[in-house]
Nucleic acid binder design. Structure first.
Lengths: 243, 243
DNA sequence: GCTCGCTCTTGATCTGAGTCAAGCGAGACC
DNA sequence: GGTCTCGCTTGACTCAGATCAAGAGCGAGC
């Protein structure tokens, strides 16, 4: 990031100037010229909750950066059982490089903003800049780490620990700006109960009961079903099983 | 693979000639010269079941290819609960590129043979050959896909479906040579019951009961607790939940 | 040969989360 | 205002898999 400080801001395409993807996301690997080229083909869009963004089994012809909101990656069993296998937050990259169908589908969890570009462009840029492939590789490794954390959670944690872990995961990923190092946070749940259940391998009813339990134990406060306040992250972590 | 047919075999280092990693693994990205350079620093080793290969939280200074056997990647909770988050079969690459600690530890599940080399060498080769990074990227994406399949399994499948899926996973990964397109296979279980339990998020007793159930349903035959025969892969798939 | 330790199986019982069912509150639409 | 739908909660009951307990099989070491 500091490496780019010397570049005058006017070299940066207007649409990219305020975008997180340029700092923490894959676009950070691009030169101003490449960024310009890319930005000429990008399309910003905003979609409603539960809009399907990628279908499993369907090869994709566009990639996106998540600019705002939360995207659910999910897998479906033939009989309808569903598991959310990952959540993507801004500025994550969305879409499987190298064409292989990844077998997951992607849906907006809440109001989501995307910055999309055709597959062809990304492929060109990858070829001329190994640093871009490196960024994508790093994102893949990061997602792999998260997937494995989730496996531990799904396989070995109790319902209560799962819900606590989920809240902590949200706190970790959302607005890293508002990180004032305090032990207390407040935020909007981007997922509805049904999504949380599909993420944690539980049922809606169990999510509801566990949240009530956390509320009665004064570990969280809940307003309007969606606004969560965690008075002490520390205390919440104590019931997450993570130490 | 066909691209290398024209290279005379004598260009290939002796230790690499019969190695799967040269074909399906990461070494396939290297030129004969690079392979030679690498092979001068590699060390072949063979380790007993349950030997620790990588410790979580400990940065690694060597990478390996799995040449024979099965390696368990696992995560541990502070109170001792354990989850196996991945299994690596020959010729998988073992070790996290770019130094970051991945938080998993690796143990031999059965008798394992490794081909190891110092981190420095891999880093040098990655710098001079983007194709190598590409191979590593592809392996990361493959592992990510597998991790997500496992998440669906851990979160949504019944004990019976989990055990059936596990056997199918083994059939998929083991000796792709012996794949004579028949519907019946026979193989040795590389994991003991306790490992299977940690992999599937169940207990030893449940594994045992589910195997007995499969045996009584004539879906598998079991000899000496370790030798499995599946008379019809098709029928086993029918109880795996995968369609 | 005998014992020890390890892996695995089987049975009896318990329990955490699922299932089924009812009801509430809030926004959307008529 | 009334009714529908959707998201959520709560209670009663059920059940799949965990837990607890006993014992069998088998190879290693003495």
């Amino acid at each position: 990031m500091s490496k780019r400080k010397d570049i005058h801001n006017s070299d940066i395409p207007v649409v990219c100037r305020a975008c997180e993807a340029r700092h923490r996301g894959v676009c950070g690997a691009l030169t101003p010229e490449q960024l310009l080229k890319l930005s000429q083909h990008t399309k910003l869009s905003s979609v409603k909750p539960d809009t399907t963004l990628l279908e499993a089994e369907t090869p994709i012809d566009a990639y996106s950066n998540v600019v705002r909101g939360v995207v659910k990656l999910s897998k479906l069993m033939p009989d309808g059982r569903q598991q959310i296998v990952g959540l993507q937050f801004a500025p994550d990259f969305l879409g499987r490089p190298f064409q292989r169908d990844s077998g997951v589908s992607a849906e907006a969890a809440d109001q989501v903003a995307l910055c999309s570009f055709p597959r062809r462009i990304l492929e060109q840029l990858t070829e001329e800049s190994p640093e871009l492939e490196h960024k994508l590789h790093e994102q893949a490794l990061r997602e792999l780490d998260e997937a494995r954390d989730l496996m531990l959670m799904l396989g070995r944690k109790t319902a209560g620990e799962k819900v606590a872990s989920f809240l902590l995961l949200l706190i970790d990923h959302m607005d890293p700006e508002g990180n004032d190092d305090t032990d207390t946070v407040s935020f909007e749940l981007p997922l509805k109960r049904a999504d949380i259940a599909d993420f944690l391998g539980l049922t809606i009813e169990t999510i509801s009961r566990q949240l009530t339990k956390l509320r009665k134990a004064k570990l969280v406060e809940i307003e309007n079903n969606r606004t969560i306040t965690v008075p002490s992250i520390e205390r919440l972590r104590n019931v997450s099983g993570d130490f």
